[in-house]
Design a protein around this nucleic acid. Structure first.
Lengths: 226, 226
DNA sequence: TACTCTATTTAGGTAAGGCTAATTCGCGAG
DNA sequence: CTCGCGAATTAGCCTTACCTAAATAGAGTA
């Protein structure tokens, strides 16, 4: 049986494995992300490996097997559908859906998933702009780059913002930065310096100053892709 | 901290304590209801007693303290609000809401509870006809008697049906027995024999035969109370 | 008054999932 | 080629919540 803890590990391995260029996920990064000690992570990795849900090369890192990835995507699908649902049907704000969904995602039956999915009209993006995996376990691809990687005069549409910290999300929302908004880099100071960006396209646009680190968590797709 | 298991014990102690005439709940009945062994129940009762959530008189039974009852009622409130919500907002049928709610009830935040409550218009009865405890932890009183206890020519409105077994609920629904329906006992055979009852008040009423045991799980309030 | 029956509790054990402390491995620097 | 350092693993424990088998107590019967 797949426990709640296992689901969390699988989900996190998937996420970490897809955000950097790195092949495998290190035990340390995983432990850090899950807020457990490194030995706890090692222990769970062994279990996941025994169940053929992950491949663990000691001191080298983990990768998910197809079976493990399937489960990870199911959990992520639940999470993102719940985020949509909480926002659309229950009036949650953009920045409050994450923690609620984190608790509920492990307890959603197939039946409930179907009903929510249908009621929302089969959405493909969650409120943060992240794609929702399909019921069959396929994660839709989305070409996007972190805002931090753009140069002057480059820009596009804010696709997704790495979620998890409500205060951070509120701060960004306060300066007009949320999914769907047009942004354009005006100036990017060197040595990982801050960015000056124009937020919004029309008369209501404003100029904002953004640290490089925070800008790395905002993903932008080119406007032509819209 | 209150674990999920503790919540389940408290909820079940509350329910068992309020369905018979008995004061305290026996370890055996509790273990049976929770589908655990008697020693497991004993162990948990000790823990609950240490936390001052229950009073455990060894070999005599348990009762909840006010603190324990408060938690039990919170869990029951979550359960019943969820049942309402699943039926009203997500189109679940009357007999399918119970198990879904059983899993979700432990993971509902105050925030979510409030929103669901408001969206439903602050309901006071769940789809089975059970009263929903208030946010303050008060269970609304409802004068009702088991159908099995009525004599010939007695009757009333079906208030609630002990939930838990979907097949049973469907069976009853099939003969027209669900909350809000008028019933009248035509004949009650002695020695715990079956009841002949008239289901429904108008031209569409029908006569049904009902075992005494099953009739004990159907609660009826007098029509005048409506 | 003593016996027996059954419910309950005690004793002792397992599996998950976490922790700290100690060990080991692999890699880069000298 | 060896050393040292940091990341990862092993060793050893804890807590929660369950289990089975054995002991016990309370209630009714002889």
């Amino acid at each position: 049986m797949i426990s709640r803890a296992m689901e969390d590990y699988l989900k996190t391995i998937y996420k970490l494995g897809h955000e950097g260029a790195a092949e495998a996920v290190s035990t340390g990064a995983l432990a850090e992300a899950l807020d457990v000690s490194a030995p706890s992570a090692t222990g769970m990795l062994k279990k996941l490996a025994e169940l053929h849900l992950a491949e663990h090369n000691p001191r080298r890192g983990v990768t998910l097997t197809p079976a493990g990835e399937k489960i990870a995507l199911e959990v992520i699908r639940h999470h993102r559908l719940l985020e949509c649902y909480l926002k659309e049907a229950l009036g949650y704000s953009w920045d409050a859906v994450h923690e609620e969904a984190d608790r509920l995602e492990h307890h959603v039956s197939d039946e409930l998933e179907s009903r929510i999915d249908a009621l929302l009209g089969y959405p493909t993006l969650d409120p943060h702009g992240d794609p929702i995996p399909t019921r069959e376990g396929v994660m839709p691809a989305r070409a996007s780059r972190p805002l931090a990687a753009l140069g002057p005069d480059e820009g596009g549409i804010v696709g997704r913002v790495t979620d998890g910290d409500a205060a951070k999300l509120r701060y960004l929302a306060g300066m007009g930065l949320f999914p769907g908004v047009t942004v354009m880099v005006l100036e990017a100071l060197p040595f990982n310096g801050p960015l000056r960006v124009r937020v919004g396209a029309d008369a209501a646009s404003s100029e904002q100053l953004l640290g490089r680190e925070l800008a790395g968590e905002i993903f932008v797709r080119s406007a032509s892709e819209e």
